[in-house]
Design a protein around this nucleic acid. Sequence first.
DNA 1: GTCGTTGCAAAGCGTTTGCAGCCTA
DNA 2: TAGGCTGCAAACGCTTTGCAACGAC
Lengths: 128, 128
Amino acid sequence: MNNPRIQRDTRQRKAIRKALREAGHPLSPKELLEKARDEVEGLGIATVYRNLKALQEEGWLVPVELPGDTPRYELAGKDHHHHFHCRECDRVYEVDGCPGNVRALTPDGFQLEDHEFVLYGLCERCAA
Amino acid sequence: MNNPRIQRDTRQRKAIRKALREAGHPLSPKELLEKARDEVEGLGIATVYRNLKALQEEGWLVPVELPGDTPRYELAGKDHHHHFHCRECDRVYEVDGCPGNVRALTPDGFQLEDHEFVLYGLCERCAA
DNA sequence: GTCGTTGCAAAGCGTTTGCAGCCTA
DNA sequence: TAGGCTGCAAACGCTTTGCAACGAC
């Protein structure tokens, strides 16, 4: 039942998965490159992008798209949640819960499929 | 009390303002270019970007930044509201109101400054 | 050994900037 | 007329793609 897209488990792919698994918060391609380079010296950014795409199609990770910033990536399969984007360190954190009341805002005649909710401010570390 | 940044009211700038004023919904730079070209043939995309920046600093318009898509622009000074992004035609619409309950979601120790909320689905036209 | 994968470099794409000429005030 | 503004093209930063060598199976 493996997705046929992923066929070989290379050092690079292992390093990328490990970095994402251990990060604890969504990572950008560049952050991922830096972390994964601890394991695989000389890892190329193109490889990161290719694996992000493949792991996404495989369903192993999901993109976290943020207003006005490059996407981050996190493990798939988590409960519905949103994100907090720190304006100081640019890091992205998970936020449990959802404001709800979403459908009530949808204009008449519009067909709601999904929603995104992003908080901005300072993270605990930067607020100190 | 005019902002010193804007000094001359060119045909191009007038066309850009007119396009945005008449659109009724937030526009992307490309949409803006196309609309404004009805007034000023040969208008360049660089001019659109330069004027978007200037009008933004002047406080005449605000950017609408969307997850995973290029920013749109709308008139400044509106009441707090959010947006609906149509997945079919890629157009962006205003949505009155706000789900509220925002502060309750903020993690302990984090300092909330702002929030963004985007609905996805099909607009009235595309749902038909 | 095969052929999917990698690293490099070049290509894309949206946005920004340098520059010479233009046009508003 | 002066100098801010424009259009063009080159530069940028991020992401994707072509290609020959590499390495997992």
